[in-house]
Every structure is written in structure tokens, then in C-alpha cells.
Design a protein around this nucleic acid. Sequence first.
DNA 1: TGCGTTTTCTACACGGCGTTCAGATTTCAT
DNA 2: ATGAAATCTGAACGCCGTGTAGAAAACGCA
Lengths: 246, 246
Amino acid sequence: MCKLSSVRDQRQQPPTRRARLRAETTREIKAIALDHAAAGGPDAISLRAIARDMGMTAGAIYSYFPTRDDLVTTLINEVYEALTEAVSAALAPVPPEDAARRILVWGEAFRAWALANPAGFKLIYGDAVSGYRAPEGGAAPEPEHRACTIVTGLVAAAWPEAAPTQSGRTYEWSDFGAALVAAVRREYPELPPAGVALALRMWGRTHGLVSLEVYGHLGAMVHDPAPVYRAELLDMIRSIGLTPPE
Amino acid sequence: MCKLSSVRDQRQQPPTRRARLRAETTREIKAIALDHAAAGGPDAISLRAIARDMGMTAGAIYSYFPTRDDLVTTLINEVYEALTEAVSAALAPVPPEDAARRILVWGEAFRAWALANPAGFKLIYGDAVSGYRAPEGGAAPEPEHRACTIVTGLVAAAWPEAAPTQSGRTYEWSDFGAALVAAVRREYPELPPAGVALALRMWGRTHGLVSLEVYGHLGAMVHDPAPVYRAELLDMIRSIGLTPPE
DNA sequence: TGCGTTTTCTACACGGCGTTCAGATTTCAT
DNA sequence: ATGAAATCTGAACGCCGTGTAGAAAACGCA
């Protein structure tokens, strides 16, 4: 029996030697797992292979993660967080007023990250790990909400122009998930439910082409998907009442 | 050593008893594999499990498929074909002149099939099977081209109205894959390269929301993705210069 | 300092997987 | 009827995740 919550409180200024080693080993496990995923796809994440690379036995990893699926869940969360951070970083230098350019930069940053980290993309949005079953509530609810909130922020900034274009159908707050609604109403109080629907559509719209490209379905069709994707982004910006940059 | 091309010519009116048995067994292997995929996800496709269900040994399947990946490739092709046939069937009763309604029906048929066959969708568009490596040229080039041609046909029918909306960027035939270009120029000679780019964008646009929904990323955000998806389809129809039905 | 507890790790076992191979059996063409 | 080809079994190999028992190491406290 191993108490996996050994690092219970970190009130101690000098964390015990054990805690330091444990943190380091945990970090190494995750790093090697991500290396394997990057090299041979997310399915290459195997406890035995990781342990082999670390000079350990497979069983030893169970001192750090109760099961392989927990390791995968942790990885999904970290990778998803890396994605949202990459997008946020790309968005940071763009002034909040320039809603159109922010959408463009967001879309391009998302695609750039996905193409640079295909294994991570598949880990987040696909089913690539053999028998992996995500915990209830999804594998990475927090990063997913954060990602969704970023898109919603883009819509909120553009809402004065976008609102007239979204008169087709009416939405209620009750149409959406409680956690998302709470975050949106807190961060963007002026945004109506229709704005959330638009954000989800924009998320899906970018996800589609990027997903097709990452999984190799676009390569046989078009030699360079970049202009097609760029055209889609510009069209999306135009379709919500903004004038695209350039 | 087994000659896997035993059914070389079917000029014989009465196919030999062997050939009949072989065809039946092949059919059964694929059917059981698809059952397993539908039940436990595409990753549940295992030669041992299939053989167990058939009262055989795993090795026996190697008389019908040289390797597991070949079986998977065959399944992907058949499932992809089923998808294009489902979409074509839904499209059949809609008159060719009603370009807007055809796009709407196409989009809804695609989503309906994906939701009814999530395992098939993941098989086609995802990475779900453990160590599967697709053959060069993709796992299912023919059905993929057919699917792509269907979308292009929708664009071709709408091109008189759509053309003015697609003036942003110019495309050349050389931007696209040779096989796709050949099929398009043969079937829709009046369609310029920009029409193919628009078709790819429409493909991606629908793929995005459907993919997010199938993989469960939309469920936590919106209780019923149908209206969001419908709004996206209507917006897409509008964005190419058509007036949406209803 | 030394002792008892906790954590970490090894060694082994179990059942699952794809794949290969020798050999038995069945079917077919001649 | 005979020889060739196709089909299938059963055992093996090495991979996998997951447990369990027990050894070894590090720790906290007296």
C-alpha cells in the first residue's frame, strides 16, 4: 500500500528530500511520456517503455500514478494547458480593441500549436491512447473551459458588431453547461447567450480544418492548407460583422 | 504459405465451394470486427477477440487478411463508403436546383451519420486503433475523394451565387491534389479552383462541430448541439451568397 | 543514535494483444 | 486417385497494463 498523497502540505520551507525526489521523478515520468507521445503518437505512452527509459520496472510507476489512465489524464491536462498558454501568449501583444486581429491571431496560433504538437492535439481531441477511459466530467475540464472562455472573450470584444449578425435564433442560458455559463457571466457580463453559441461555432469552425490537417486528411487534397485556413478565418471575421485586417 | 488471392477470377458461374466459404468467412470477420468497434470503440478490434467469437484461432484470420492493419484498412474503406452512401441517399430526393437546401441536407446527414456511428467516425477520422499505420496514400483514398467530390458538387451548383463572395484570394489548379483536380474538372468543368478551396472549407467547417460533438467535447458546453450546428449550416449557406431554406 | 514507519522499487505472475511457424486437415484441379 | 493449395490448430515470442509480496531505502521521532 502506497500513500500517493505523500506531499500533503507544502508548508515546510525546505521540502523533504523525499518530496524533492518524488517531484523530480514525477516530472521525469511525464516528460518521458510526452517524448514518447511526440515520437510515436499518443499510443506510444506505455508504462513499461517509460520505466525502461528510466532504468526502473513498470511497477515502480504505480508509486506515482495509481494507474496508467491517471497518468494520461494528467498529461492531457498539462498539454491542454500548454495549448491555452500558447494561444494566450500569442494574443497578449494584440490590443484588446482590435477584435478582428485578435480573432485572426487566435486562429493562427491554434493551428500553429496543433501542427507543432500533433501528438498533443490528438491526445486532447482524439482517442489515440489504447484503452483510455476519461474520468467523468471529461479528462481536462479546467483547461477546456479556459480555452472556451478565451474564444468567448473574442466574441465579447466583437459583440457590438457581431450582435446584429446573430439574430437568427434565440438561446437561453439554460442551453449551456453550468460551469461555462458561470465563467462567461462573470468575465463578460454584457454578453448574451447567443454570444456563447457563436463562440462554440467559431471554436468548431477552426477545429474542423485543423483537425483534418493534423490527421492527414487535407494533405491529399491541397498541398498547402495554410491559405485555405487563412481564408476561412477571414471569412469568419467578416461573417460576424468585423472587417478583417490587411 | 497461403495464397491470399485465391479468388483470382470470378469468370466461373458456379464459384467453387471454397470461394463461397471464403467470401462468407471474410464477410463474417468484417461484420464481427465492426460489431466490436461499435460496442467498445475502434480499439476493440482485436484478431483474438474476433477469432474467439467465430470459434477460431487468431492465426486463422491470417488466411484472410495478411495483417491486422489490412483488416482495419478494409474496414475504414467500407465504413467510409457507408458514410458517403448515407449522405448521397439523403441528398437524392433534393432537387439539384435547390442548392441551399442540398447543402443543409448534406450537413445534417453528415452529422446524423456520425452520431449514429461514432465508432465509424472515429475509425475514419481519428487514430483510435492502437498501433495502426495507414498505408501510403491514406487508408481510404477512394471514398475520401468521393466524399470530397460530393461537397464540391454542392459548391458547383451554388457557384453562380457563390463566386462573387470568394474574391479574396486566387487559387491555381496546381494548389490541389492531382486526383481531386482530375475528378473535379471531369465532373464540374465550369468550376474554377477557388470553388475547390471553398469546398474544402465547407468540409472543414462541418467536420469541426461534428468532431467535437462525437468526441464529447461539446457535451459539457451545450446541452443540445443540434441548434448550434444548424445555425452554423445556415450561416454557411448565407456566407456563400445563397438564401437559407425555411 | 537507533527504531519503527512509510515510501519506493524489484521480481514475478496473470491475462491480454499481434504475429509467426510447423504440422494436421480439408478442398480442389487434374 | 494423386498432388498441390488453402485452411486451421496449437504453441511460441515479445509486447502490454495490472496486481502482489517482499526487499531496500529514506524518513521522523525518541
